[in-house]
Design a protein around this nucleic acid. Structure first.
Lengths: 136, 136
DNA sequence: TCTTGACTGAGACTCTGTCCATCGTAGGAT
DNA sequence: ATCCTACGATGGACAGAGTCTCAGTCAAGA
């Protein structure tokens, strides 16, 4: 993640203080922040940063593949900086907490051709739901 | 689905024209409508039906277990009336279309105990993503 | 240093969903 | 068949998340 700024620069993107701050916030915390939380934390470092800029930057990071967008509950999307290690998510149905998990097996292999209906299937996302120790 | 009205009545629920219309809309179409689409289609049959009523009724159907709420993209929730047959979803990354699919294997079995972090895991939801024939 | 166009800020706007006070009516009671 | 009343419907206000617009700014190449 620390060389993210280099990768952005290599793509011809301008290196602004706002982008640096957003990258720093994501880099320092792996708790799947919402866009609004990213904005709040960024604003501590750079008070005048705007919501639009945070949304733009997050969108850029997602399309660059540096960050994964997770929407587990139909509410706010969350941003997962752990994009370089494939993993799935375990979500607490009560408090919404998310943990990264690494199941065995490949769900893509479980979808036979006749169940693909002509789709070009590229990805399988597994969300485990349950209660975390604190909520159980 | 056609005896949904009977099941609702058995629970002591009032049978209103609005509820009948919402059930009819869901019954007639298995394309995973959004709440707003359900409202639009209901309004064709019963022009004065309100958004709040559609949301309320959908919520009731979900808690009754007649309909499954699916949020695949962090935007609008979609409502899947095929609640009585366990299945997963295949989503087109371009147009958002959803198909029900029936993969082999059990993703819950793929999550070893040491990857559960004390959670009581009750459910695994798999979302396959790709491009549908029309968008490929 | 100058120039330029990509980036930012501010806020209005859209979309999705919820809440609330008030009105209407389904269905049991008579 | 008619009446009652609690449950459900209405519609408008509200809230949260995200997008868009456009004027102004500034990073980085010339």
């Amino acid at each position: 993640m620390s060389d993210l700024l280099e990768r952005l620069r290599a793509r011809g993107w301008r290196m602004t203080s706002q982008r640096r701050v957003v990258a720093q916030v994501l880099d320092g915390d792996h708790t799947h922040l919402t866009a609004d939380e990213v904005h709040a934390r960024s604003a501590r470092l750079l008070p005048e940063i705007s919501r639009a800029t945070v949304y733009n930057t997050l969108g850029e990071l997602v399309s660059l593949g540096e960050v994964i967008e997770v929407s587990t509950d139909g509410r706010a999307k969350r941003y997962d900086p752990n994009a370089h290690h494939p993993h799935q998510h375990l979500v607490c149905a009560s408090c919404g907490m998310i943990r990264d998990v690494h199941p065995t097996g490949d769900p893509l292999a479980d979808l036979p051709a006749q169940e693909r209906f002509g789709f070009t299937v590229s990805e399988a996302e597994v969300t485990y739901r349950g209660l975390c120790p604190a909520c159980a």
